[in-house]
Amino acid sequence: MALGAIVLGGALGYAAVRFRVEGDPLVEKIDAILPQTQCGQCGYPGCKPYAQAIAKGEAEINQCPPGGEEGIHKLADLLGREFKPLSAEHGIEKPKAVALIDEQTCIGCTLCIQACPVDAIVGAAKQMHTVIAGQCTGCELCLPPCPVNCISMEPIAESVESWKWKYPVFKLTPSRKEAA
């Protein structure tokens, strides 16, 4: 039993080191800017690890496609680094979408449930699964594991409530340079 405790203790200790970096305010600030899609496109297993890598200076600030240009600008401002366009090798900025499971085709294999980083898919083994749209971050991690390719990404449609007023256009002054 003592052995078990030791093993357990070791695992817990590892977990504590691995998953809880408490009290690093810079990492928290960077993490607050990252979109929390948890998609891993940046090359790290999640937003927090990427934030840690940025804080340590190991990663560039332009590796997060869901955060887009705006996110890079914010990171640049926070860290006092130079703005860089989104790195192409990590992906492109896409309109926000949510996963949709074709409920006719789904075989209930639970593979997507295991893949989803935010537990946005519900369903039990051998039962059809559903994505809770409000919680889906659009990370696309559930697409590859699906053996029957029944998951597709649906762009989020604009509604009367989410519609935004556009930036007022300058009709007669196209080359307005000082408009920041």
Binding site: L172, T173, P174, S175, R176, K177
Partner: peptide, 8 residues
């Protein structure tokens, strides 16, 4: 030079 609408 600054590409602004002149008459305006």
């Amino acid at each position: 030079l600054r590409g602004k609408p002149l008459m305006l």
